[in-house]
Amino acid sequence: MDGTRTSLDIEEYSDTEVQKNQVLTLEEWQDKWVNGKTAFHQEQGHQLLKKHLDTFLKGKSGLRVFFPLCGKAVEMKWFADRGHSVVGVEISELGIQEFFTEQNLSYSEEPITEIPGTKVFKSSSGNISLYCCSIFDLPRTNIGKFDMIWDRGALVAINPGDRKCYADTMFSLLGKKFQYLLCVLSYDPTKHPGPPFYVPHAEIERLFGKICNIRCLEKVDAFEERHKSWGIDCLFEKLYLLTEK
Rank of each mutant, 00 (worst) to 15 (best):
P139F: 13
Q42G: 07
I91D: 04
F171Q: 10
E109Y: 14
L207M: 14
D2A: 07
W78M: 06
V65T: 02
P195G: 04
S7E: 14
N142L: 06
V199S: 02
P139H: 10
G175Y: 15
Y198I: 14
S129W: 15
I10E: 14
D188N: 10
W230R: 05
D233H: 15
K37A: 12
K32V: 13
A167F: 05
D2G: 10
M1A: 14
A222F: 02
P196F: 01
F146G: 00
G144V: 03
L57S: 13
N142E: 08
Y166P: 00
D162A: 09
E12D: 12
P68D: 01
Q47W: 11
C216V: 11
K122R: 11
E114T: 09
G3P: 13
K238G: 10
Y187T: 05
D168M: 11
C216N: 13
F40M: 12
K37Q: 09
G231Y: 03
T4G: 13
R226C: 15
K37L: 13
L8W: 07
D151V: 00
Q22G: 10
S85T: 03
K210C: 11
G161V: 14
L217C: 12
Y180L: 05
L69H: 08
L207Y: 10
L207G: 01
L239T: 07
Q30C: 13
C70E: 01
H201S: 11
E203M: 15
V199P: 12
S106T: 15
E218S: 02
K191I: 12
V156Y: 05
R226Q: 15
Q44C: 13
I115M: 12
S125R: 05
E12Q: 13
D151M: 00
G161Y: 10
I214P: 01
H201T: 06
L8K: 09
H84T: 05
P196A: 08
Q47C: 09
S14M: 08
T25A: 02
I10F: 15
E75F: 03
H46G: 06
L207D: 04
G62P: 04
L49Q: 09
V89E: 00
L69E: 04
D15R: 12
Q19T: 10
L235Y: 08
R226T: 05
N104R: 08
Y240D: 00
K238Y: 02
W78T: 04
L185S: 12
R82L: 14
S229L: 15
V120G: 02
A167E: 00
G175H: 13
P200H: 15
F146K: 01
C234L: 13
L130G: 00
F100W: 08
L105S: 05
P139W: 11
E90C: 06
S229M: 11
M1H: 03
R215C: 14
N213F: 10
E17Q: 12
V220E: 13
E225A: 11
E244Q: 14
V23T: 09
D188F: 05
Y180D: 00
I232V: 08
V34I: 15
L53R: 05
I128W: 01
T169W: 07
S134P: 07
W29H: 09
D221C: 15
E244H: 06
L239E: 02
T4R: 11
L155C: 14
F223S: 14
Q30G: 10
N127L: 11
V34H: 09
P160S: 05
L26W: 05
E205Q: 10
S124N: 03
G175A: 13
Y131T: 01
L26E: 09
F121H: 01
N213G: 12
D168F: 07
S14C: 15
F223I: 15
S85H: 14
E114Y: 08
K145T: 11
I214F: 02
L49T: 04
Y107L: 03
F100A: 00
L242M: 06
W29M: 03
T118E: 11
A222Y: 15
E90A: 05
Q44D: 13
K245P: 14
W78P: 01
H84E: 00
S124V: 13
Q44M: 10
F171M: 02
T38E: 06
L207E: 01
V120E: 02
E237Y: 03
V89T: 07
C133P: 00
P196D: 04
L235D: 14
F208T: 04
K20Y: 14
E114M: 06
P189V: 07
G144N: 03
L8T: 08
K210A: 08
C70Q: 04
K176Q: 13
G71P: 05
L185A: 03
S7H: 03
N213A: 14
R215M: 07
H84R: 00
E75K: 04
L155Y: 02
F56C: 09
G153A: 06
F66W: 00
K228N: 04
G88K: 01
D147S: 02
C212Q: 09
M170L: 13
K219P: 02
P189N: 00
K177R: 11
K119M: 05
L173N: 00
V18P: 11
E224L: 03
S61T: 14
W33A: 08
R163F: 01
V87K: 03
E109S: 03
D162T: 08
F178C: 11
C234A: 15
G83A: 02
C133N: 01
V74S: 09
T6S: 14
C234N: 05
K176P: 09
S186P: 04
F67A: 05
G231H: 14
I135K: 01
G144W: 05
Y187V: 03
H201A: 12
D2W: 06
A222L: 11
T141D: 04
W230Y: 05
Q42S: 09
Y13K: 09
Y166A: 00
N142T: 12
E218T: 09
P68R: 00
T38W: 09
R82V: 07
D54L: 07
P189F: 07
K177A: 11
V220A: 05
L239G: 02
V86I: 09
Y131K: 00
Y180S: 00
K32W: 11
P189A: 13
S134L: 01
E224M: 08
Y13Q: 07
L130P: 01
F236C: 04
R140G: 10
G153P: 00
E114A: 15
L173P: 01
M1R: 12
G144E: 08
I214T: 05
E224H: 06
K191G: 07
N127E: 12
N35E: 14
C70L: 04
L155N: 00
L24D: 04
L69R: 06
V156D: 13
I91Y: 14
P189T: 11
K119T: 10
G88R: 00
D233L: 05
L49G: 03
I10Q: 14
V220S: 05
P193G: 10
L26H: 11
W33N: 02
R5F: 06
S7W: 11
A222Q: 12
Y166C: 01
L217M: 12
K210W: 09
Y166I: 01
Q47S: 08
F79L: 12
T118K: 10
K50Y: 11
L155R: 01
G209E: 08
Q103D: 05
D221M: 04
R215L: 15
K228Q: 15
